[in-house]
Structure formats: structure tokens, C-alpha cells
């Protein structure tokens, strides 16, 4: 689909390793994006940023879906990504509404203030 002359990569052995992209590359990348999102969720207080981190995690998973979809020559992975995006949109709408409500009740969006959900 998008093509580019990459033969120059093969000219150098060091670059050759860069040139051979396997599904595993994508999976590792997806886990890295996931981990970054997770890092945000764990370390941040701001509910809006945490929500963005969640979106990042979802994207990490999406990447793995598409990669495996290609690997297995099966479009269902991409269909699943479509549904993930739909669910993410729904989730964002509801979560942002919750954040607005939280801001109204607690006077801020720090999740450290919302600790009612405890055992």
C-alpha cells in the first residue's frame, strides 16, 4: 500500500536487522505502548490524564490485534479493533461525564480524592 525503496537498508548489515520487521516487532511495540499507558495510569493523579493513558493502553492492544490479523491473514482482528474503538468512544463519553461529576462533587479531578471504592 505504502511503498518506499528500502533496498538501501540491506546494504549495511547493521541496517539489515532494522529492515526485517516481523510480527514480533509489532507485538513488542504494542506491549511497550501498553506499558507506557499503564505507567501513566499508575503514576498520575489527574483523572483526565489517567483516561488518556487508558486510551493509550487500548491502542497498544489494537496494534497487537492488527499485527496478528495480518499474520493469520484474517480480517476479524481488524473488525475487533473497530469494536474496540467504538467501545473506547463510549467509555470516553461516560468517563468524561463521570469526571465532570467528580469535579462538581470533590472540587477537583484528582483520583486521590475519590477513594470511596475501598474494601
Amino acid at each position: 500500500m505504502i511503498a518506499m525503496d528500502t533496498t538501501f537498508l540491506a546494504s549495511s548489515p547493521a541496517l539489515a536487522a532494522l529492515g526485517e520487521i516481523t510480527t514480533a516487532h509489532y507485538v513488542v511495540l504494542s506491549s511497550l505502548i501498553f506499558a507506557v499507558g499503564l505507567f501513566g495510569v499508575v503514576t498520575r493523579k489527574n483523572a483526565v490524564v489517567i483516561l488518556m493513558s487508558l486510551e493509550l493502553m487500548l491502542n497498544g492492544a489494537n496494534l497487537a490485534f492488527v499485527a496478528f490479523s495480518r499474520q493469520h491473514a484474517n480480517l476479524q482482528g481488524q473488525v475487533f479493533v473497530f469494536f474496540v474503538i467504538a467501545v473506547a468512544a463510549a467509555e470516553a463519553a461516560v468517563a468524561l461525564a463521570i469526571i465532570i461529576a467528580l469535579n462538581r462533587v470533590k472540587g477537583g479531578v484528582s483520583l486521590d480524592d475519590a477513594t470511596e471504592l475501598k474494601g
Binding site: I50, A114, T115, L117, K118, G119
Partner: peptide
């Protein structure tokens, strides 16, 4: 005791 309400 572990679950103190902090989501992170």
C-alpha cells in the same frame, strides 16, 4: 487493607 480506594 490492600484495597484502600486508590485506583492506581
Amino acid at each position: 487493607l490492600l484495597l484502600d480506594g486508590h485506583l492506581h
